[in-house]
Every structure is written in structure tokens, then in C-alpha cells.
């Protein structure tokens, strides 16, 4: 544990005015730890990483770590990341977004980034709510759940972020939880090393806004729910639909090799140069 603390310490920005903004018990700290451990395992230098985040509680993550960091506009983190990656392909660009950030205001950018298959890693923290603004329903708030804008129960259906990413064309899609922290390390590491657009949906909790409103208990109870509801993909395959009712799978859900944008664009450059070299 001491080594783990030292490792996290190595990557934090100590001149940043800590403490961080997150509530005690928040899953974002666990994610931050997992991200640091995963990056450390890849052996990448700090300078080879560009970390882009959106707006919301998860959006604050980028300021705390010693990489090339951008705290972008709400929903637009992937667009900034696209520019960075195309301008400097040697950078490993990691994007942190929340559920509302990635699939509501940034939904269009999310599906098109997946379709385009640029070599980016998108980590979507799904806590089923807009936490920073005080607990309004998001595209992943379950049907019937209470929020400050669905006081009579949410009447909208929720997105499955992982399925959305897979259908839109991502090369790799994984789902983990902040409870299964060591699995999360592995999933993020794999996603960073994957060539093509990779998505890690991180099931987290907002006990402050969502948990309190829906009487789900505090951070401990909500983490316990993650433990009880998450089923490893290998095990889920042997379970019936009824047995999976109310549960979700974790692990690498999609892993395939598809043409990567930067590789394809290299062909465009070659074709253009051939064309320019032709006598007019």
C-alpha cells in the first residue's frame, strides 16, 4: 500500500492547491488511482500523455495530475482530443468524461469519435446523475429514479454507454466499476495500449446526489451494490437472462482490429503527394 501511495504521489501535481473538489467517498478518486497505476504499468513517460477532461466532477480530474492536461468545455473533450492526436500522433491521448458529458451534451462527438476510430482512449465515469450541478437526471439515470429534475420519477430510458460505443464502431469497449479497482487498472491499461478508439465505462456512484435522493445509502452501500450487481463477462456467459436481471457485465466487452484513422490518413497524404508531383 505504501508503494501504491508513492506511485500516486509521483504523478500528482503538488503545486496545485489541494485538497481536491470531490466529496468523501467519491469514486473519482479510485478512478484517478486506477488511471495512474495503469499509466505507470504501460511504461509511458508523463510527457507522452495528454489528458483531456470535460466538465463536471470527473472533469476536475485532469488538473491534479502531471501530464499535458486540458480541462475542455462541456461535452467537447473528445473534439479537443481529436485535434491533439491528429496534430501530434505520438502523444497518447486519454479522455475523461462523465455520463452526461459523454452521452448527452457530447453524445454526437462520442458516437462520431467511435465511428472515426482515431487512436484515443475514452474513460466515461457513469454515476447515473449530474452531480456537480446538484443531482439532475442524466441519459443514464434509470427509469423511475428520482433526481432534482425528476421528482416524480424519471420517465426516460437509459443509455447503455458500452453498447452505444460498440455499435458506433469503437475498436475496444470495456466496463468496470470503482469497486473492482484492480480490474479497472487492467482495463484502462489495455485501453491505452489498444490501437484504435477504446472506451472504458466506469460504473461509479454519487451517494451525495443520487444515493441520497433514491435512499440507496452512502458510499459504502453503493459500492456494495456494485460488488453485488457486477458479473464478470466469463461468468455472465453461463447465466440466463433471468439470472442477469438487474445485473451488468464487467470486463472487455468488445476487442477487434479495425482500420485506425491516423493510419488511413497516411494513405491520403501519399495519394495527395503523388497527385501534386504529377506535371500539370
Amino acid at each position: 500500500m505504501a508503494e501504491d501511495t508513492k506511485l500516486v504521489y509521483k504523478y500528482l501535481r503538488h503545486d496545485k492547491k489541494f485538497p481536491h473538489v470531490w466529496c468523501p467517498g467519491c469514486g473519482n478518486g479510485i478512478l484517478l488511482g486506477a488511471l495512474i497505476r495503469a499509466i505507470d504499468r504501460t511504461g509511458l513517460e508523463k510527457d507522452e500523455i495528454a489528458l483531456v477532461s470535460g466538465i463536471g466532477c470527473s472533469g476536475r480530474l485532469s488538473v491534479y495530475v502531471d501530464f499535458n492536461t486540458v480541462h475542455a468545455t462541456h461535452g467537447r473533450a473528445l473534439t479537443f482530443a481529436t485535434g491533439i492526436k491528429l496534430a501530434k500522433p505520438k502523444l497518447h491521448v486519454i479522455v475523461i468524461m462523465g455520463d452526461g458529458d459523454a452521452t448527452s451534451i457530447g453524445g454526437n462527438h462520442f458516437i462520431h469519435a467511435a465511428r472515426r476510430n482515431l487512436n484515443l482512449t475514452a474513460i466515461v465515469v457513469n454515476n447515473n446523475i449530474y452531480g456537480m450541478t446538484g443531482g439532475q437526471y442524466s441519459p443514464t439515470t434509470p427509469y423511475g429514479a428520482l433526481s432534482t429534475t425528476s421528482l416524480y420519477g424519471n420517465i426516460e430510458q437509459a443509455f447503455s454507454i458500452a453498447e452505444l460505443a460498440g455499435m458506433a464502431g469503437a475498436s475496444m469497449v470495456a466496463r468496470g466499476t470503482v469497486y473492482h479497482a484492480s480490474l479497472l487498472d487492467e482495463l484502462i491499461e489495455k485501453a491505452i495500449l489498444k490501437r484504435g478508439f477504446s472506451v472504458v465505462e466506469v460504473i461509479s456512484h454519487c451517494h451525495t446526489q443520487y444515493g441520497r435522493k433514491n435512499k440507496l445509502g452512502g458510499a459504502v452501500e453503493m459500492l456494495r451494490w456494485q460488488k453485488d450487481s457486477a458479473v464478470r463477462l466469463e461468468k455472465a456467459r453461463s447465466l440466463s437472462q433471468e439470472e442477469m436481471e438487474g445485473k451488468f457485465t464487467i470486463g472487455v466487452l468488445v476487442d477487434r482490429d479495425l482500420p485506425v484513422y491516423t493510419q488511413e490518413y497516411r494513405k491520403v497524404r501519399e495519394a495527395a503527394k503523388k497527385m501534386m508531383a504529377r506535371p500539370s
Binding site: 483531456v52 473528445l78 473534439t79 482530443a81 481529436t82 485535434g83 491528429l86 454526437n108 462520431h112
Partner: peptide
């Protein structure tokens, strides 16, 4: 590099990203 983005919001975001990377 030329890229046709999904909308103008994304275009402006990508331009900022590219400039941050020095282009």
C-alpha cells in the same frame, strides 16, 4: 491534416486541440 468533423462545435474544439499540440 484535414478533418471533416461532425459539426462546427467539434471543428472548433479540434482546432484548439491541434494548436495546443503546436500546429
Amino acid at each position: 491534416t484535414f478533418i471533416q468533423m461532425e459539426d462546427e462545435i467539434a471543428s472548433m474544439g479540434a482546432v484548439i486541440g491541434a494548436s495546443l499540440a503546436g500546429v
